[in-house]
Write a protein that binds this DNA or RNA. Structure first.
Length: 191
DNA sequence: TCACGCGGGAGAGATA
DNA sequence: ATATCTCTCCCGCGTG
């Protein structure tokens, strides 16, 4: 089994490091541009897989932005700061990626399913929601059992970063448009 | 009243 | 050693 990325890895790291540096140098300016309302188009391109939203692709040079989009299609959803580490060994999956996997798995439809998939809205089954949580706990290798309550808390944290929003409906959440787009792209790349 | 889902503070663990 | 990120745990509140 491969435990490191292909030959392109070093190039990808260089790009990622550049983006991080770019962000650092422009942090103040970028922050002032961010509109954190949850309205349409308010967080264009900031959800690059598990890339922290504070790094806005549209604030980076166009060519790099394109490169990183492709780069972040890596199956393991390696974040900027985790890329080098992941090259050495497997990177733990993040919750929203795990949920996307569940949503794409027809066998898990009884636990969690798309409401309108195109909008990125999904809903947990009131009876089987803890099954998803338990699987998440297993995936993370938690000693104590994961519950829906705890998992949903983690989901609400994503609202701050703009990756997933809470829908005003029971057990229902929504991927941000950009997160959904990128997850779909990553998922296709994974197949 | 009770069960359930949600919101938020605090802290743990991993990593840079 | 310190800062940051991403959860995880726990408690309280609102709703049906």
């Amino acid at each position: 089994m491969m435990d490191s990325y292909p030959d392109t890895h070093s190039d990808l790291e260089v790009i990622l490091e550049f983006l991080e540096e770019y962000y650092r140098q422009n942090a103040g300016e970028i922050a002032s541009k961010v509109n954190w309302t949850t309205g349409e188009g308010s967080c264009d391109q900031h959800c690059m897989c598990n890339e922290p939203p504070r790094l806005l692709a549209h604030d980076a040079p166009q060519s790099l932005s394109q490169n990183t989009t492709a780069l972040l299609s890596e199956p393991n959803f390696v974040s900027t700061r985790q890329a080098s580490k992941a090259a050495g060994r497997g990177r733990k999956v993040r919750l929203f990626h795990f949920l996307f996997e569940m949503l794409e798995d027809p066998n898990m439809a009884h636990c969690v399913s798309w409401v309108p998939a195109a909008a990125g809205v999904f809903r947990f089954s009131s009876t089987n929601k803890d099954e998803v949580a338990a699987l998440w706990g297993q995936r993370k290798g938690n000693k104590r059992p994961m519950t829906y309550q705890k998992m949903s808390r983690a989901l609400r944290n994503y609202a701050r970063s703009g990756e997933i929003f809470k829908v005003k409906k029971k057990l229902t959440y929504q991927f941000s448009r950009d997160t959904l787009t990128l997850l779909q792209r990553c998922h296709k790349g994974d197949m």
